[in-house]
């Protein structure tokens, strides 16, 4: 076991040091797909979370419950639903997106959106409780209130986006269904690891796993540095 890990570390290092073109392609595609999905999810989920935090009305509690429950959506189910939507006989089949990176982005966006929205709602609700009287005293509209809260919570929301990125980059079930794991087209880190494991190339799979963890650490580190700078300035 120890020898396997040592060999995997060595292989991972060799792959990184040699800037292996196949590895580079897979890493870049993984990042492109997951960062796109997180960006799209944030575009939808942050205003949604803010709206749920600020507004009161019938059905809001049910919506919050639904959102919280959606955080645990099984990736394979999401993959299957997106597959049915995008398949030739599905309602969006004419777009021809199945087995493309776009399909993978859609699937990951569906998975990440509830996570970002639910966590953002909680953060913004806490901040809203603190700001509420001041903002109402200023006569802010709900939209202006949401804008203020989203801006002032931006460093905490970065961490939320990071949680979404973690979910997206580590996801395999949905992207393998809608992407098909096609070499040079839809193959990403996680699907490659799954493939190499099934082929019995455990060393290579482990090496890719280590690189995936390294990637996640790097993105985490970058966001934490940004958040720390915000905290240091007492804006967060």
């Amino acid at each position: 076991m120890t020898q396997e890990f040592a060999a995997a570390f060595s292989l991972a290092w060799q792959l990184l040091a040699s800037a292996d073109p196949a590895l580079r392609e897979i890493v870049l595609r993984s990042l492109a797909v997951s960062l796109s999905a997180v960006s799209l999810a944030c575009l939808v989920a942050l205003p949604l979370g803010a709206a749920l935090a600020v507004t009161r009305g019938p059905g809001r509690t049910a919506l919050v419950l639904l959102l919280n429950a959606s955080m645990g959506l099984p990736p394979v189910v999401v993959g299957l639903l997106v597959y049915l939507l995008l398949s030739r006989s599905g309602p969006l089949g004419a777009l021809g997106l199945l087995y493309t990176p776009s399909a993978m982005i859609i699937a990951q966006t569906v998975l990440v959106t509830p996570i970002v929205a639910a966590l953002a709602r909680q953060i913004i609700a806490d901040l809203h409780a603190e700001y509420d009287e001041q903002l109402r005293s200023l006569g802010l509209t709900p939209l202006a209130t949401m804008r203020t809260l989203l801006w002032d919570a931006r460093f905490s929301l970065l961490t939320v986006a990071l949680a979404g990125f973690g979910r997206a980059i580590a996801e395999v079930g949905a992207v393998i269904i809608v992407g098909g794991n096609i070499n040079h087209v839809t193959r990403v880190m996680t699907t490659t690891i799954a493939l190499e494991t099934s082929r019995g190339n455990l060393g290579l799979a482990l090496a890719l796993g280590l690189i995936l963890i390294l990637l996640a650490l790097l993105v985490n580190g970058a966001v934490m540095a940004l958040r720390f700078s915000g905290l240091k300035a007492a804006y967060a």
């Binding site: 603190e130 009287e133 001041q134 005293s137």
Partner: peptide, 14 residues
């Protein structure tokens, strides 16, 4: 045309 000041100042993170 009104304003209010609270016992504990509510200042934005700015």
């Amino acid at each position: 045309r009104q304003a209010m000041v609270f016992q504990r100042p509510i200042l934005l993170r700015r």
